[in-house]
């Protein structure tokens, strides 16, 4: 048994954020809520979603692995209206996931389940020296600046505690500098200077579904994966992206 009702807008955002990196996902559902971890095909990035039970208006579930094609889910959620309620319902007999959208009309979709067995993929527990809390819009703007000069970007914490988004091409260079006085910065928890370099296309995918006022928690170290977390309603989404190393 699995039946869960949530506002369509939040679930759409969760699917949009996930489907930028992976094609299929296995939702591990149980009485506490929905969890899913997946790596992109090249194993450079990982996405982890946690939608606790209290996010839902109604939630009843036993333990199931529900493997779905994210592209199909993304298309259906693309048709959802923000004032609609979405009910997810597992049809074990037909091996389908039903998506029922309700407001003025009742619209029913049903998608085939994939045999994506749970990968038991765990998010590695990495300790980070630095954490930046920044508005998503500001970070996305800095990435756009960096993109003008190269396909990769360095996320740096300077000796004097500034957060720097730096990119260097053959001839050109771009740099966005934030400090504790910047309005877009909610907090800088810094213990040491650090620098890691990342592929820009991945960072853009990771931040694509964000709204400009979303608060990103960016965890940084030197030549370490970047961890980026934000909330979608009560749900939490986490990305890990491996660095590029000189």
């Amino acid at each position: 048994m699995f039946k869960a009702t949530i506002n369509a807008k939040d679930f759409k955002k969760i699917i949009d954020a996930t489907s930028n990196l992976v094609d299929e996902i296995c939702f591990e559902v149980d009485e506490n809520g929905i969890k899913a971890n997946a790596m992109d095909p090249s194993h450079v990035a990982l996405v982890s979603v946690n939608i606790p039970k209290d996010t839902f208006e109604e939630y009843i579930s036993d333990v199931h692995d529900i493997g779905v094609d994210l592209e199909a889910l993304k298309k259906i959620m693309g048709r959802a209206k923000s004032n609609e309620k979405l009910t997810l319902e597992l049809d074990e007999e037909k091996n389908k996931l039903n998506l029922i959208l309700k407001n003025d009309a009742v619209r029913k979709f049903s998608v085939s389940l994939y045999d994506v067995s749970s990968t038991n993929l765990k998010v590695p527990d990495i300790e980070y020296p630095n954490e930046v809390m920044i508005k998503a819009g500001a970070f996305v703007e800095a990435l756009k600046d960096a993109e003008l000069v190269n396909d990769h970007v360095s996320l740096k914490i300077s000796e004097d505690g500034k957060f720097i988004i730096f990119s260097k091409g053959d001839i050109n260079q771009s740099e966005t500098i934030y400090d504790n006085n910047s309005e877009s910065i909610l907090d800088l928890k810094i213990t040491e200077s650090s620098k890691s370099t990342f592929n820009l296309a991945y960072l853009k995918d990771i931040t694509k579904a964000t709204s400009s006022d979303d608060i990103l928690h960016i965890y940084l170290g030197s030549d370490m994966p970047v961890k980026i977390e934000y909330n979608i309603g009560n749900a939490k989404i986490l990305f890990l992206l491996a660095p590029r190393i000189e």
């Binding site: 194993h43 990982l46 990769h152 370490m224 890990l240 491996a242 660095p243 590029r244």
Partner: peptide
């Protein structure tokens, strides 16, 4: 040029 590594190195 920096080289992309995979996440496996951190598991």
């Amino acid at each position: 040029k920096p080289k992309q590594i995979t996440l496996e190195a951190f598991f």
